[in-house]
C-alpha cells in the first residue's frame, strides 16, 4: 500500500491543516453542545484536581473547557498560577516591558531557551533549552508555556545531552508561537 497517502499533521499543507482544524473544532463544538443537552447529563465543572492531572499527565495543550473555566473563575486561575509556580523547578518570567516583537531567546533562572530556524527544512525551528551551569539532576521532563488568554501548551522534553535539550517544531505551531511571545511564562519540571 502506498505510504504517501498516510498523512501526518506536520506533512499536510497549510490549507489542509486549516480545513481539518476547522472541521475538528466544529465537531468538538457540536460534541460539547450535544453532551450538555443530553437529558440527565451535565458536564462536570473543571476542578483544581483536573488542572493538577493536566500538569502531571501526557503533554498537550490545555483543553478548551479548561481554558473556559480559567477565564470564568478567577479563583481557579489564581490556583492554577500557584500550581504552575510551585510545580516548576525552573521558570522564565514574562520578558521586560521594553521587549517588543517576537523573541528568539528567553532567559530563565538557570537556563536559556533559543529558537533557531532549520536550514534543512523551511518552516521548522529548533527549540534549544540550555542549562548554563551544567545539566541538573534530575533533569526536567516537560516544558509548559502559558500566555495571555489562558493559552497553555505543554511538551515533553527529550533527554538532555551536554546540558542541552533540542526539539524540532513547526514554525507555526502553538508552542513556538507562545515561546516567541514576550507575554508568556515558561515553566520546566
Amino acid at each position: 500500500m502506498n505510504n504517501n497517502v498516510n498523512n501526518k499533521w506536520s506533512a499536510l499543507a497549510e490549507r489542509q491543516r486549516q480545513g481539518l482544524t476547522a472541521a475538528f473544532e466544529a465537531l468538538a463544538a457540536l460534541d460539547a453542545t450535544f453532551l450538555s443537552s443530553r437529558e440527565g447529563q451535565r458536564m462536570r465543572p473543571v476542578s483544581f484536581r483536573d488542572l493538577v492531572l493536566w500538569t502531571k499527565g501526557p503533554p498537550g495543550n490545555l483543553p478548551a473547557v479548561y481554558k473556559m473555566a480559567l477565564l470564568n473563575d478567577q479563583s481557579l486561575r489564581r490556583d492554577f498560577d500557584r500550581l504552575l509556580a510551585r510545580t516548576a523547578e525552573w521558570r522564565c518570567e514574562r520578558a521586560a516591558a521594553a521587549s517588543s516583537g517576537l523573541l528568539d531567546i528567553r532567559e530563565g533562572n538557570g537556563f536559556r531557551l533559543r529558537l533557531k530556524p532549520s536550514k534543512g527544512a523551511e518552516g521548522q525551528v529548533y527549540v534549544l533549552i540550555e542549562f548554563l551551569a551544567g545539566a541538573p539532576d534530575p533533569q526536567p521532563l516537560s516544558l509548559t508555556v502559558c500566555g495571555p488568554e489562558e493559552a497553555c501548551e505543554r511538551i515533553a522534553l527529550p533527554e538532555f545531552q551536554d546540558a542541552v535539550a533540542q526539539i524540532l517544531c513547526e514554525e507555526d505551531s502553538e508552542v513556538v508561537r507562545l515561546l516567541r511571545n514576550p507575554k508568556t511564562e515558561i515553566f520546566l519540571w
Partner: peptide
C-alpha cells in the same frame, strides 16, 4: 492526549 494536530490516514 497525543499533543499536536489530528492524525489522518487514507488507504
Amino acid at each position: 492526549i497525543n499533543g499536536g494536530g489530528p492524525q489522518s490516514v487514507m488507504e
